[in-house]
Each structure stands twice: as structure tokens, then as C-alpha cells.
């Protein structure tokens, strides 16, 4: 009988519901975890795989990244043979961020470390052209925030 009485008292007084209310009330007063993104920009860790950057000055046009890319979004154009002997920098370098899945598999095999992910993560754009990067738009400097877009037709012509 005491057991039944105890159960009845528990049923009528809602102790477990009250403790549940206590949990939500506790967090009512605690500081909130929301990040105010556009106002306060997050600092991404060093390894964050943001937008791909290529240092074209150190690139030796070995095409390792092109071969490693699972989405085939990298295209490297080597300079002509006689130039390549002395200057191995690519004549053209395309990265289509439209297809890039930020997997980091192009970064692993790069012998010079010239292709790497940056901490830049704001890549939304209204134009498809903005996602095709060539040697004029691939930055050398990580601090440059916004890049002029290349016009697709010109870019493709130059590359071919």
C-alpha cells in the first residue's frame, strides 16, 4: 500500500516534470551559445579546409594535384618545353570551386606545398564565373579578401 500511495503522490505532484523544468530554467540564465556570424567572424583553426589557394610562384606544374583530385576540378597547363626547362611555373591554372569538395586530397601529394587550403570560407556568389579561378584570380596573398572575377570566355580562350 505505501508503494501505491507513493506512486499516487508522485503522479499527482509531478516531481520528474519539475526537474525537467529545472533543466530548461537553468539554461535560461546561462550565456547563450549562438554565434553572431556576420557581426563576429569566427577564427578558423589552422587546418580548416577553406578555399583552395595556389602559390603560382612556387608551383612546378607537376600535375600531382590534378591527378589526385576526385572531382577533376583542377587543370594545370605546363609551359612549353623549352621554357619548362628553366621556368616551371604554369602558364595557366584552373580551379573550379563549383566542383571542389574541399577534401584536401590535392594538398597531400603537392611536392612544393604551393596548393593549400586557406581559412577563407565565404564563397557564396550569384555568378558561376566567380567559382572558376585562373592564374589572374588565384591569389598569391592570403590577406586579399575579394578577387576580381575573370570572364569565363576570356579565361577559357587563354587556357586553350
Amino acid at each position: 500500500m505505501p508503494g501505491a500511495l507513493h506512486r499516487l503522490v508522485r503522479m499527482m505532484t509531478f516531481p520528474e516534470l519539475a526537474s525537467g523544468l529545472g533543466v530548461t530554467f537553468k539554461w535560461f540564465h546561462k550565456p547563450k551559445v549562438t554565434e553572431f556570424y556576420p557581426d563576429k567572424r569566427p577564427v578558423l583553426p589552422y587546418r580548416a579546409k577553406g578555399r583552395l589557394h595556389v602559390d603560382l610562384e612556387t608551383c612546378i606544374s607537376c600535375k600531382m594535384c590534378e591527378r589526385a583530385c576526385p572531382e577533376d576540378c583542377i587543370k594545370v597547363f605546363q609551359p612549353p618545353k623549352e621554357v619548362f626547362k628553366t621556368d616551371k611555373r604554369p602558364v595557366q591554372f584552373f580551379i573550379s570551386l563549383e566542383h571542389c569538395i574541399h577534401c584536401g586530397m590535392c594538398v597531400d601529394p603537392c611536392p612544393t606545398g604551393s596548393i593549400h587550403h586557406s581559412q577563407e570560407f565565404e564563397m557564396a556568389s550569384y555568378l558561376r564565373n566567380d567559382y572558376l579561378f585562373d592564374r589572374t584570380t588565384l591569389p598569391y596573398d592570403l590577406d586579399v579578401k575579394h578577387f576580381k572575377q575573370g570572364i569565363l570566355e576570356n579565361v577559357v580562350e587563354k587556357g586553350q
Binding site: L44, P45, R47, A48, K49, H102, C103, G104, H117
Partner: peptide, 8 residues
């Protein structure tokens, strides 16, 4: 933690 460890 993942982002700091593997980047994504």
C-alpha cells in the same frame, strides 16, 4: 574538434 584536427 574535427575542424581543428582534420580541417572539415
Amino acid at each position: 574538434l574535427f575542424e581543428a584536427m582534420v580541417g572539415q
